[in-house]
């Protein structure tokens, strides 16, 4: 059987809210090492990779590797019924066709359980190679969200270029053009405002803003987000989930014809 107890239950809610618009149905894979998900959006342009390590759960038991197909919309509906401070426990039998979510209030005066029907989902896993990224910028997650939102009002695509001067986000459209440059700032008073840039070589790639904007729905999960780029490769947008794992998004670049 599978059983996992998460004291920070709202973390699961944040994860599902971050990916449900990108991916409709997905397989959650459980093993003794943790709870993971890998799924592409319908157009196979972007990929979501979630990893929650078993040691991040208060209790984690997985006797046999299993894949649980879920409608993320329905899962979000169920998780919406959990209180913000509730402890969430997931349970599933090895050969069952449902997963149960139990919500316990912190004062232990309210317990509820919701059963979600599992679905059979055909999914192909992609191998994500270890990559020596040319540039990685780590910036406040709220700043990334703002850049994507602001540029979306100007154009549909963004050119992200990393040079020794900083990381520039450029967009253009009918309205005109926009450039936003973030520079390294590791001495900001507040840690949550710090920006760090690790540049091995200059790199510039073009991406669809629609997807980058969608990734920003993960903002509540982490104070910072890292964008890692290498020439002619998908960008990796990485939200670290403290003490547990990560939620990563990959987006294929636009390619010059």
């Amino acid at each position: 059987m599978f059983e996992a107890r998460l004291v920070q239950g709202n973390l699961l809610k944040k994860v599902v809210d971050a990916v449900k618009d990108l991916v409709t149905d997905a397989n959650f894979d459980c093993s003794s090492s943790g709870f993971t998900l890998q799924a592409m959006d319908n157009s196979h342009v972007s990929l979501v990779s979630l990893s929650l390590r078993s040691d991040g759960f208060e209790h984690f038991r997985c006797d046999r590797n299993m894949s649980m197909g879920m409608s993320l919309g329905n899962l979000a509906k169920i998780l919406k019924c959990a209180g913000n401070d509730d402890i969430v426990t997931m349970k599933a039998a090895d050969d069952g066709d449902t997963v149960t979510f139990m919500f316990e209030s912190p004062k232990e005066d309210r317990v509820s359980d919701f059963e979600l029907k599992l679905m059979d989902i055909d999914s192909e896993h992609l191998g994500i190679p270890d990559t020596d990224y040319a540039a990685t910028v780590t910036l406040p997650a709220a700043e990334y969200q703002r850049i994507c939102r602001d540029l979306s009002s100007i154009g549909d695509t963004v050119v992200i270029s990393a040079t020794k001067d900083g990381v520039k986000f450029s967009s253009s459209g009918d309205v005109g053009t926009a450039n936003i440059t973030v520079r390294q700032n590791t001495t900001a008073d507040k840690k949550e405002e710090q920006v760090s840039i690790d540049l091995k070589e200059p790199v510039a790639l073009t991406f669809a803003l629609r997807y980058l904007n969608s990734f920003a729905k993960a903002t509540p999960l982490a104070s910072h987000v890292s964008l890692s780029m290498a020439r002619d490769l998908p960008v990796m947008v990485d939200y670290q989930i403290s003490d547990m794992g990560h939620l990563r998004f990959y987006l294929a670049p636009k390619i010059e014809d």
């Binding site: 157009s43 896993h125 073009t206 294929a252 670049p253 390619i255």
Partner: peptide, 14 residues
């Protein structure tokens, strides 16, 4: 004009 790449062009099957 740039065209949108697909992930399978970059990441292979496991």
């Amino acid at each position: 004009k740039a065209s949108q790449g697909r992930l399978e062009s970059f990441f292979g099957p496991v």
